[in-house]
Design a protein around this nucleic acid. Sequence first.
DNA 1: TCTGGGGTCCTAGGACCC
DNA 2: TCTGGGGTCCTAGGACCC
Length: 407
Amino acid sequence: MFVSVPSTQATILHADLDAFFASVEQRDDPALRGRPVLVGGGVVLAASYEARAYGVRGAMGGAQARRLCPHAVVVPPRMSAYAEASKAVFDVFERTSPHVEGLSIDEAFLEVSGLRGIAGSPTDIAARLRHEVRERVGLPITVGVARTKFLAKVASGVAKPDGLLVVEPDGELSFLHPLPVGKLWGVGPVTEARLRDRGMHTVGDVARYSEATLTALLGPAAGRHLHRLAHNQDPRPVRRRKRRGSIGAQRALGRAPKTPDDIDAALTGLVERVCRRMRRADRLGRTVVLRLRFDDYTRATRSHTLAAPTARTSLVLATARHLLRTAMPHVDRDGLTLIGVAVANLRDEASAQLELPFWTGDGAHPRTAVDVDPVLDDVRERFGTDAITRGTLLGRSPGVAMPTLPD
DNA sequence: TCTGGGGTCCTAGGACCC
DNA sequence: TCTGGGGTCCTAGGACCC
């Protein structure tokens, strides 16, 4: 899994498609090329660079975006087209390097050390990658090249759109320290404000504070992370991504009054969508999460962990309804503006079969065992019999007397 | 600046176990 | 009998990312 990186060379590429959704729309409809394009009406999912010139940003409200750029063309999102384009781009990534770490639908890290002999310098590889994505998929992509992931990502951000920027090892600190702290990965509005209150505006400012100070300000993980980034320490290797840990869906409900039936219908639709996606991916999950958002933009989550993983709609729906019932007495139904369901604690269907629930001797603690058979062997040995089967141990049939499990 | 839909990771407290 | 330390799991919330 680990790739050894020569620490003296810039060999990590961060490749990031430019205004991805909007670029796909411009690729597929020549009439949109050169014009400001907004994908999504309620909220801007993506804005073409022509629209960004007017100050439009992603995640901006649609009304505000149209105020800033009245002549923009608004198109509805076509998620399947974006998924297809993403797959084609990742195919190019995979052909470029065996070490690809996808970050999202439109960006990835590539480790290209060791390819110099066959594919040229990292700069050559990056230039060719950009060319290939343009030729084969028809989309503009920006690549940052550096010695660390973090710097490569910052570099691509600076080089956008349709650019290539290489940060050589001897120019790292002069590139990094003048940047505003908000450029640091993991620094959002809240952390930025906290740093600003302490007089830290640039990465160089942050670098002057001790790790202890940053940790006291931001918590142990964030403080350490920030301290390291500010000192250009980012040893994280490029590695394949873990499989995703949750699958969810959510829906905005608007501000109109709603009946319990309205809410239940929305909940049912969401659970069906989520369970269908889980089954298609051959994945099962144990934790059902209910997300609620209210008209004052406060949020609440409720979750429940089942004894065994499932992708069954009826079970997930019953659990979600239970969570909603226990949450609703405390909230105003008409104030509910968004409802979401996710199933977390995911595993592959195949491995989940080894994770059936069993009960310890007193029957009070439903548990899961990652590996049932070693326990079974142990129990047989202690009870001196082979008559105890996996089924007995798992206690699936009611009324069967359970043996007491040894410690 | 009033807001989508999809995620990840961290924190902190409580329950429970050894 | 009382006490404690260490570890895992669950729940809820928060920050952040694209």
